[in-house]
């Protein structure tokens, strides 16, 4: 509750620079969270998650550029759906491989799209990227339009979109499909024996994760008001992996914590040192070596001990 209030009321106590960083945290949290569905819950490491992030970003930018009078929400939906389409197409091949081969094939697909974005200059602008596309206001029937150029408004809007998507992801894990996804990670052979059609599960998992990453990419495009090959670069995929692992693989809230950490600590390090990636990289290696649960583990412990009296009281009430 307190946390939700703190996130919602950010625009009231944060300066404009920090508020912009917070907006970045939101869509990166969604990006890392969608990767976590595949890696943390499905047990497969994807190396090419930026393929969907980049597709979402490019499609949103292109459709705003070329379709006159396109609304804000349709533009985001187009970005997410085209990423899902690409994801579904790739899934046809991805469901057949596992382990390291899966990682390699996702890398190949990512690089394929990156090469297309780099070379298809007429459409994507190549290295120069795409800029100066309109950023429409949010039109709500009966309430009027909300100016998206305002930083605080855009923050709330991002929060609403990301919040909805995260809720969908959270809900997904509680459906039978979600149970099947976790079974994939635990023991695929046994899941097959139990009658789960794991290839179908994988297909849905990859497509849904691609959709979520695409929406994150759309928000990125709208926020930056500029898209270049950086959005679809393999390094962007590495970013998502770093956030996910630093925050905590396999815990639903881990990647969000990781995104918060990476954006703010990254920004802070960038201001004090040139070699900020060195510290992030070294920290990441240390996490993999010594604390594979991620930053979320101490937070969960802290929460557990803080609420211990409450839990005891509840237990006593239940007994009496």
């Amino acid at each position: 509750m307190v946390l939700a209030l703190a996130v919602i009321s950010c625009p009231f106590y944060l300066g404009i620079v920090d508020l912009r960083l917070m907006t970045e945290v939101l869509y990166f949290a969604l990006f890392a969270c969608s990767l976590n569905l595949i890696t943390g819950f499905g047990g497969l490491l994807s190396f090419g998650h930026a393929a969907y992030f980049g597709t979402g970003a490019y499609v949103t930018a292109l459709s705003l550029l070329h379709i006159e009078g396109l609304g804000l929400l349709p533009a985001i939906l187009l970005g997410g759906l085209s990423a899902a389409l690409i994801g579904a197409f790739f899934s046809i091949f991805l469901i057949r491989v596992s382990g390291t081969y899966y990682a390699m094939l996702t890398l190949a697909f990512n690089q394929l799209l990156f090469a297309v974005a780099l070379k298809w200059r007429d459409v994507t602008g190549g290295d120069d990227g795409l800029g100066s596309f309109p950023k429409p206001n949010l039109e709500i029937p009966l309430l009027g339009s909300i100016d998206m150029l305002d930083t605080a408004n855009f923050y709330w809007f991002t929060l609403a979109v990301v919040g909805l998507m995260l809720y969908l992801a959270w809900h997904l894990l509680r459906t039978p499909l979600g149970v099947s996804i976790i079974l994939l990670r635990e023991n695929e052979e046994r899941a097959n024996f139990l009658g789960h059609r794991t290839s179908v599960t994988r297909f849905y998992l990859f497509t849904i994760a691609a959709f979520l990453a695409g929406v994150a990419g759309s928000m990125f495009a709208l926020f930056q008001e500029f898209v270049s090959t950086g959005a679809i670069d393999g390094l962007r995929s590495v970013d998502a992996i770093l956030m996910m692992v630093i925050g905590g693989v396999g815990h639903f809230f881990g990647p969000m914590l990781g995104a918060l950490f990476m954006v703010f600590v990254g920004d802070w390090l960038m201001r004090i040192t040139q070699a900020w990636e060195f510290y992030i990289g070294a920290f990441f290696v240390a996490m993999v070596l010594f604390s594979r649960g991620g930053l979320i583990v101490p937070v969960l412990y802290g929460w557990h001990y803080l609420t211990l009296p409450l839990q005891r009281a509840r237990l006593r009430r239940a007994e009496s």
Binding site: L45, F278, F284
Partner: peptide, 10 residues
């Protein structure tokens, strides 16, 4: 795999 990514960055 994750470790080698971090190592490449470092």
């Amino acid at each position: 795999l994750l470790l080698t990514i971090g190592l490449a960055l470092v």
